[in-house]
């Protein structure tokens, strides 16, 4: 196995991790089932491609701008979620994926089916990143994203998402404005997917409409689902599995979609909580709170009890 090959697989794994975490915020946290996640990914990639290739912008400003645009469009594409009955959001997002890819395909400005070529690799102090350096760069971003999502998982933002996912009316009744929280979810997911798009586009240095079509969305969904919807580690593991599996099973390369499909079906059948969710369940039993948190709460409650003189 050559180093370059290893680096490429690693870069794809990490980009997929970012994508999976991003989709997980929508599906696992906020309960907004989106099946058009590749569209967000594509918007980040195309935004950066146009900014750098067509408008001649440098990589760094394009990075900022493309991620910002993705977040903004994520917000816009999240609008249906405010009105659509929950199970039909899926349809709306499939539609969004389809429309976005059609736009890439049929609007000249976006290069049509031949895409946009010649994206620059980022450079720092006049030195363009080598593949190795680029992999390190992606790694740094992945760390940032994992840290960020981990941090958010421990805030009232996350509890607001949880409430929204569990029951929209009840969430409203405790002060969670459902439109606002849906918009938060879509904006954050859009930002992260946009970042992934940017990283991917400048690694490949070309973008084509097909890179962001519906099957790609299914791939991202597979990562989240097999890893464990709503967990933090699950999507990361899912991303690695989905990226590496076709590489390991080289003979089965031609069967990629088939394998995705079967994995999805059987995960839903036998362990709907995914790998991480199921393992957690086996070890800790069915507690919704982590062990650490339970201990922490016990400590606080216990101290309180003594103060109250019990």
């Amino acid at each position: 196995m050559s180093l370059d090959y290893f680096l490429t697989v690693s870069v794809f794994s990490m980009i997929n991790m970012i994508l999976a975490l991003s989709l997980n915020i929508l599906i696992g946290y906020a309960g907004q089932v989106s099946l058009g996640h590749a569209a967000f990914f594509g918007i980040g990639a195309y935004a950066s491609a146009i900014l750098t290739v067509k408008l001649g912008m440098g990589y760094w400003p394009a990075l900022l701008l493309s991620v910002f645009i993705s977040g903004l469009i994520g917000l816009l594409l999240g609008l249906p979620a405010l009105r659509v009955r929950e199970d039909f959001l899926v349809l709306a997002t499939i539609g969004v994926n389809f429309v976005v890819v059609s736009i890439f395909n049929y609007v000249k400005f976006f290069g049509g089916p031949y895409g946009i070529l010649g994206l620059p690799r980022p450079s720092l102090f006049g030195h363009a990143f080598t593949t190795r350096e680029y992999a390190l760069y992606v790694f740094l971003w992945t760390l940032v994203v994992v840290f960020l999502v981990h941090y958010l998982s421990n805030t009232y933002l996350k509890l607001g998402f949880d409430a929204l996912r569990e029951d929209e009316d009840a969430a409203e009744s405790v002060g969670v404005s459902s439109p606002r929280y849906k918009m938060y979810a879509f904006a954050i997911a859009g930002l992260l997917a946009g970042l992934a798009g940017n990283l991917w586009a400048h690694y490949m240095t070309v973008v084509f409409p097909d890179n962001f079509s519906f099957p790609v969305s299914i791939g991202i969904l597979t990562m989240v689902v097999i890893g464990g919807v709503g967990t933090l580690v699950g999507p990361l593991i899912g991303a690695i599995i989905v990226t590496i599996l076709p590489e390991v099973l080289r003979f089965a390369r031609d069967y990629r979609m088939l394998i995705y499909g079967l994995i999805i079906v059987f995960t839903m059948f036998f362990m709907p909580k995914g790998i991480v969710g199921s393992i957690k369940g086996l070890i800790f039993g069915d507690t919704p709170l982590g062990k650490k948190r339970v201990e922490k709460v016990r400590r606080i409650a216990g101290a309180q009890g003594r103060i109250a003189g019990r």
């Binding site: 009232y156 949880d162 569990e166 969430a171 969670v176 709170l289 709460v297």
Partner: peptide, 30 residues
Amino acid sequence: FSSLSVLENVLAGLGVDIYPSLEAFQRSPF
């Protein structure tokens, strides 16, 4: 909130003033 613990259900209620503000991004319910 079915899949949340009872404690989290109550914590969710305590967030009533926090959700609409940016504090939601900072404060931990725990």
